[in-house]
Design a protein around this nucleic acid. Sequence first.
DNA 1: AAACGTACTCATGCAGAACG
DNA 2: CGTTCTGCATGAGTACGTTT
Length: 312
Amino acid sequence: MSIRNSAAGAARTLARLDLNLLVTLDALLAERNVTRAAQRLHLSQPAVSVQLGKLRQSLQDALLVPGPRGMSPTTLALQLEGPLRDALHQLEAVLAPARPFEPASADTTWRIAASDYGETAIVLPLLPRLRAAAPASRLAVVQLVPQRLAHLAEHGEVDLGLVTMDIAPPGLRSRVLFSERYVLVGRDGHPALRRRPTLAQFCKLEFVIVSPEGGGFRGAADVLLDAMGLQRRVVLSVPHFLFVLSAVASTDLVALLPSRIVAAAGLPAGVRTVAAPLEVPGYDMAMVWHERVHRDPAHAWLREQVAGSITA
DNA sequence: AAACGTACTCATGCAGAACG
DNA sequence: CGTTCTGCATGAGTACGTTT
């Protein structure tokens, strides 16, 4: 029977399949062990073994074969694992009695993935609001690793991610919080910053830039300058935004920083902002979350607090 | 009310892995 | 290399709901 790959075959397979068995398959794939899946389902091991047998017959696939450490999923089982888990989670979310979220008494622990920029520009303004409205809740800010964000959100290890829109994982829901622009910062009394520098003077300055992955010496400004046939001098690259403020305060280095990090963190003594001689394109900052938590009242509430704490 | 179908548990067989 | 352990599969018996 090789109908599995055709659309008609898939429809026939689904129509013939006892959908209750999908819950069993989900447990089997999560545990990779019939006995433990049975415990999870509050059934006996033989009962689940029989259900696995039915799944095998319906889907014409062994699904799980004895391997070196428990049962190993077949290719088809691996293909089913993600979509099946998502589908069941979504059903659970819809069917679960929608109890309204009560922030005043909720002891929820939130997990937000953010860079130090996200911490300063978004989490910092959020904090007073969160502490006042939900005093029994806790917040864990975890390091943002963009490549892992979709996976962590999918597995419920992160509730919300704070990322620039251009790297927002396509599978996640997103909402733009604000558009960011760059400002030029340098120390008070910097000889080249007494007034707005010309483009030529700008290119002679020594820059520190933030390279979140580390080691990069090019930013949005360099792309713009390239187009004009110009170059600037980037002499220091650091992974964190906040260190930049300290660096420009104590040296003649200057930096183009997102305006909100300057506004939220505050300028250290002896540091000032200056109008730049070119308009470096900014970026849209967004929060992202998984479909699974989209309808959850508690998560929706958190997202409203984040959006509401952003100042114009 | 009886017949029937379904899905469960219990007991046990069997295979492979781990251990001494 | 034999024994023990672990874990899946299977047959027998049973409970329960549905159909006639």
